[in-house]
């Protein structure tokens, strides 16, 4: 579904070697110390950064040279996912028509997406009048109306309470399954995503380590870097 083979990204003194494979319907947690390049990996997939070497394959097609808007990729940021002057409904509608001129089918699609994330009743509100968690749901609703195959989440729930974070994580997982997306979620809370994630990708020391199952990752850290990250002394 999603694949990067022998990719390399460099910017100044920062360098990252990237190999990655994700299946559809799979929720992958991206972990690693801060500054390791977790956000960079997401930015590369979304098309905001460009690798010097290697290709990004989505569904058998090379998207490496496509601009962000042409890629079947949606990214949800930690903050500022919604335009403050537009209603929640309009913010979702932007995913279908940047000029906000929607036909009836598209309108129904927006309504359905808002209902799916539990915001049907708040559709006409402005982002300033809803909670932080609800604003992030708007971003997820927008993902639902776009032709997305890869979903990228850059610490999207970092500012939310623990209980709410679990709810949102469950919603992301449901959407990943329903839409058969390949989802990459950057997190700073390894223990919280342990149960939800299907696999864990670890980034440190300028490279992306191959995906492991959460159990394997937490039980026996394969690298000194992982042990240091988790706060376990390596043998």
């Amino acid at each position: 579904m999603l694949e990067i083979v022998d990719g390399h990204y460099g910017h100044g003194t920062f360098a990252l070697d990237i190999s990655l494979a994700a299946k559809s319907g799979e929720l992958i947690a991206v972990l690693g110390p801060s500054g390791a390049g977790k956000s960079t990996l997401l930015n590369i997939l979304a098309g905001f950064e460009t690798m010097q070497k290697g290709h990004i394959i989505v569904d058998g097609r090379d998207v490496s040279l496509q601009p962000p808007s042409r890629r079947p990729v949606s990214m949800v940021f930690q903050d500022n996912n919604v335009f403050p002057h537009l209603t929640l409904w309009q913010n979702v509608a932007l995913g279908l028509a940047p000029n906000l001129e929607l036909n009836n089918t598209q309108r129904l699609k927006v309504d359905a997406a808002l209902a799916r994330v539990g915001l049907g009743a708040l559709a006409s509100r402005k982002p300033g009048n809803v909670s932080g968690g609800e604003r992030q749901r708007v971003a997820l609703a927008r993902v639902l109306v776009r032709p997305t195959k890869v979903l990228l989440l850059d610490e999207p729930f970092a500012a939310l309470d623990p209980g709410l974070r679990q709810n949102m994580l469950a919603l992301v997982k449901e959407i990943t399954r329903e839409r058969a997306l390949a989802t990459l979620l950057v997190s700073h809370q390894p223990t919280e995503i342990r149960d939800a994630a299907d696999a864990i990708v670890f980034i440190a020391d300028g490279q992306v380590y191959p995906a492991e199952t959460p159990d394997a990752f937490f039980a026996s850290p394969g690298h000194a870097a992982v042990a240091a990250y988790l706060g376990k002394t390596s043998r």
Binding site: G47, P68, S69, F77, F83, L94, P98
Partner: peptide, 22 residues
């Protein structure tokens, strides 16, 4: 915020949409 311009790129905003929305 930088995200506004990332969103504009991702959602395929035209120049006029970027002007009116961002």
């Amino acid at each position: 915020p930088q995200e506004a311009y990332k969103l504009a790129a991702q959602l395929g905003f035209s120049e006029s949409a970027t002007f009116w929305q961002v």
